[in-house]
C-alpha cells in the first residue's frame, strides 16, 4: 500500500513570535523554517504503518524551492519518495486551492491507499487542507487520529479523539487522516537518514505536469478567503502586582480578596 504524507514548511515554533505581521506572505519571513511540527507525527505514523503493514512512503508538499527542506527532513526520517509542487500559479491559493493541487498530484502517484497529514500547520492554523483534500479526492476523512488500530486493503480502523471521548471508526480506503500529537513520538533522523536526504534528488512538478488541474481553482484569484489587517495580539497592559505577606495565610488571603474583588471567582 502507498502511504502519502502531505507536509508543509513552516516557521520553527520557537520563533513564531518573531514573525512580523507585515512580512506574512513574503518569500522570507526572517525566521528559521522547518517541517511543520504537526507533520512530524504524520511522517512518523507513515513510517510505522509501513513497518506494520508494508508499503511505500511518499511525501508531498506545495511551496517554493525552499519547501524542499520540509521534504528533506521527511526523507531523513525515512520517507522514500518525494514530490515538490511548485509553480507561481500556485501562490496565494487558499486551503481549497492547495487541496486541489495536492489532489491532482496524488492522483498521478498511481494507486494510493492512506493519506496522512498533521493536525494543522503552525502558521495557517486552519486545519482545512486535509478535509479539503479528502473532498477533492472524493474519499473519507478522519481528523484527530490518536491511533491506527488496523489496516486492510479496503479499510482503515482508527481511534479519533473527539472532545468528549475516543471514537473508534472504520472508513473505506483510500482515505485521508489527520493525526494528533498523541499518536506517536516522532523519531530524530539518524546519520544515515541525513546523508540519504542530502544526496537525494527532489523532483519538482509544476501546473503543466498535472493534467487534471483546473487553474480556475488555484492561486490568489480563486481564493475564497483572504487574510487582512494582520497584527500582533494586544499586549497585556500593566505590570505584575507581587502579593506578599507576613505569613502564607496572610498572603493567600490578600490574593483571595483581590480575585473576589475582580469578580473572577
Amino acid at each position: 500500500m502507498k502511504f502519502v504524507v502531505c507536509v508543509k514548511l513552516t516557521p520553527d515554533t520557537e520563533e513564531l513570535n518573531e514573525v512580523r505581521p507585515e512580512d506574512v506572505g513574503a518569500d522570507d519571513l526572517g525566521v528559521t523554517m522547518v517541517l511543520n511540527p504537526w507533520d512530524e507525527f504524520a511522517v512518523e505514523e507513515a513510517l510505522q504503518l509501513q513497518e506494520r503493514f508494508e508499503g511505500e512512503t511518499v511525501a508531498v508538499t506545495v511551496g517554493g524551492e525552499d519547501a524542499t527542506d520540509a521534504l528533506k527532513r521527511a526523507v531523513a526520517m525515512g520517507i522514500e519518495e518525494t514530490v515538490l509542487l511548485s509553480d507561481p500559479a500556485f501562490e496565494g491559493s487558499d486551503a481549497w486551492g492547495t487541496a486541489h493541487i495536492l489532489a491532482e498530484a496524488i492522483k498521478g502517484l498511481g494507486e494510493y491507499g492512506l493519506i496522512l497529514t498533521g493536525k494543522q500547520s503552525v502558521d495557517g492554523n486552519s486545519g482545512l487542507v486535509a478535509p479539503g483534500l479528502a473532498v477533492k479526492l472524493g474519499v473519507p476523512f478522519v481528523s484527530q487520529v490518536a491511533r491506527v488500530v488496523d489496516l486492510t486493503d479496503s479499510s482503515v480502523t482508527v481511534v479519533r479523539a473527539l472532545d468528549e471521548g475516543r471514537q473508534t471508526v472504520r472508513v473505506k480506503l483510500p482515505a485521508v487522516i489527520s493525526v494528533s500529537k498523541e499518536i506517536n513520538e516522532p523519531r530524530y533522523p539518524n546519520f544515515m537518514g541525513i546523508r540519504k536526504a542530502s544526496r537525494m534528488k527532489y523532483p519538482v512538478m509544476a501546473a503543466a505536469d498535472l493534467p487534471g488541474l483546473d487553474t480556475g481553482q488555484i492561486g490568489v484569484d480563486a481564493a475564497l478567503v483572504k487574510w487582512t489587517d494582520l497584527h500582533k495580539p494586544p499586549a497585556r497592559g500593566g505590570t505584575c502586582e507581587f502579593i506578599t505577606g507576613e505569613t502564607t495565610a496572610a498572603l493567600v488571603a490578600a490574593l483571595v480578596d483581590k480575585l473576589v474583588a475582580d469578580k473572577v471567582v
Binding site: D123, W227, T228
Partner: peptide, 13 residues
C-alpha cells in the same frame, strides 16, 4: 494565526 502570535481578519470573496 501563527499559533496565536498574529491576529488576522479573514474576508470572503
Amino acid at each position: 494565526v501563527f499559533s496565536g502570535n498574529i491576529i488576522a481578519t479573514e474576508v470572503f470573496a
